[in-house]
Write a protein that binds this DNA or RNA. Structure first.
Lengths: 208, 208, 208, 208
DNA sequence: TATGAATGAGATTTCATTCAT
DNA sequence: AATGAATGAAATCTCATTCAT
């Protein structure tokens, strides 16, 4: 996983980090706001922030340019909220990590498969995410959420590796993070020819 | 490593793929063209293609906007040539891989350290490269060069793993590629706190 | 007083120029229409016609944008009607000028104080009024009303100055008009530090 | 004259308040910047800030919209600079007030005629000026310049009235200021029918 | 070669007005 | 009667590209 600042947390308190209640997210379903989010996610992730015009996003959302501005203060604001929304949504889906952390190889595998599953399911979000994270000036709100998320997972894996008696648990967890990042990236660039299953098995063999 | 289309090449013909002679590259040294390339590399990698304005690039290169257009047909042309130039230059630096391929763990380590060294030395190029690769519509020239390069290295590692009697050499090579991609990415996002040395050692332990 | 076209009327027929009966005005009290008028008066006088948005006016009036359009054909129409309404309302308040005109210094003083009192009481209307009058394209209805009003007062003062044997009654009346306009303007710009009472006394001394 | 805050200065130090050297102003002559200033002055004074579009101003200046933005950061910035430029320019023209202040009726008359001459010569600037001053949110730079200018003239007249033994010199000066403001305003609204000469003579009779 | 003023197409943003509810 | 979501025209602003010097 990516990291921006590393504060190792060895407890697992972070998994349930979503500040939004499920109702709030549910209320977004089928709303116009959701339409715009989806369109913007596609547009931004395919063309980058500057390459995706408001006009294009509006067209993809099936609304007028003007209407966008009654939902979002500006294009920049749209990006901000989209990132936070996306990250929060990711948090929602991360139910495959048990609250008590992971301790057995079976749990490790489940977590691994869960995360990689997310990558394939939400390619657009992760693509956007990479683009944004590589550019300067991320928004503070987004950065904070990211950090929480990253450190949460890092902590979980550190604990796991400690538990398994691995010599350098931190390095092990960070390398695993890089593996996951690399897999995400490669799946993004060439999803069709990547031997995911083989790589997952190898990863389990080398890390679990 | 990144891949876009995978044609496994098991020979090592690719390392010296650059069609440009060294003289051609040398002639670039200290030229205006080089100045522009450097400026554009910084600007594009920091702000993306659309976010980096021609005016900014010219300013960073210390020349006028007008002059840029006697060196490059257009902004798009500048990006094209920059990418090819960068990739070619990468090829130049890849001297750490012996022509006959690698066969011992020591050679493996040398190659690994060489590549990771490249990431830290040429961060901007790799950042630009990632941004471009994640977006559609790469230029054909660039795509071809990339493919050659990637498959070359993939082939080298496949051969190495075969040689070492590893069960599934392709998957092993692809996972190693992902590890390298992940490390590159993490180094890009948070270079200061990434335990490179520890991760390199772990990678050698797990792959060499 | 301001003038746009000068037709000297020496009779005093103008004071009660309003074609609206008091009932008509009374029917406006507390109506939605009145709410909108008040809001529009504030908005227009503070920000000018183009600077005051329909949305803002609606918000200030505590109603929806949509409802505004069942009371007024358009924003321009709202301005038109507001101006006429305001001017008519001014006429209502101008009771301090006796029907037979003024002939004694005491009456002069009363009229003077009455008008200046109006300025301080209805700052917003006069501010709007100035803004509109300085810009081209006033509406004909409004222009006609204005002219009637102005010439009425001008006539009253001309008669007064004639009566008092002043050499050039027209010039005297016009200068007095300028004094009143200047006072109105200064009161608008810096009401707190203007020595109104002193200036009134001086005006009486110089003109009555 | 208008005032916003009143600090009575009884010396005459303010007349030469222009911070720009004459060369700087001269360098503006015939420049594109000057063209834009002139166009903007006309447009703003005729239609107000929001009513005058950047497109219109550019057209009146005979340039493209785009070019405006290499001379001025924004429309608002254009207004700001225009106001300061105009006020500074006014200061330049105010040579009819002797450095030592005014003390004789002849000098009073010269000053009066000078100022009224300015009103007729630079109608557009004063119209713009009024429009701006009646609206909130003037720029601080402009406000400061205005205050200097106003207090300067106020001080000059206060000194004059003191010198002439007038009972309440401050009130007298402020009323005279209102007279001038009123004349300016009336000249703006109906220049053709205003009996300027007669009113000037009356003003001299009543104040000098 | 070198400049940067100038353009115009297109991007972002605003807002009067309409209309389904 | 009342709302405010929705539109589209027009406003502000940006920027790749050209061109006179």
């Amino acid at each position: 996983m990516f990291r921006t600042k590393i504060l190792i947390l060895t407890d697992h308190s972070v998994v349930n980090m979503s500040p939004r209640t499920e109702e709030q997210l549910a209320s977004l379903k089928d709303s116009k706001r959701k339409l715009i989010f989806d369109a913007a996610l596609n547009a931004f992730s395919e063309r980058g922030y500057h390459g995706a015009t408001v006009g294009l996003i509006a067209e993809m959302a099936g609304i007028s340019k003007g209407l966008m501005y009654s939902y979002f203060k500006s294009k920049e604001d749209l990006l901000d909220e989209l990132l936070v929304y996306g990250l929060t949504r990711m948090g929602e889906f991360l139910s495959f990590v048990p609250k008590e952390g992971i301790s057995t190889p079976a749990e490790f595998e489940a977590a691994l498969r869960g995360m990689i599953g997310l990558y394939t399911a939400e390619t657009n979000f992760w693509r956007l995410y990479i683009i944004i994270v590589l550019q300067k000036n991320t928004t503070p709100k987004f950065e904070k959420l990211m950090e929480e998320m990253i450190q949460g997972y890092l902590g979980i894996f550190i604990t796991y590796f400690k538990h398994r008696g691995v010599p350098n648990p931190l390095a092990e967890a960070m390398m695993l993070g890089s593996v996951l990042d690399g897999i995400m990236f490669d799946l993004m660039v060439a999803p069709d020819m990547y031997p995911v299953e083989d790589v997952i098995k190898l990863t389990i063999k080398k890390f679990a």
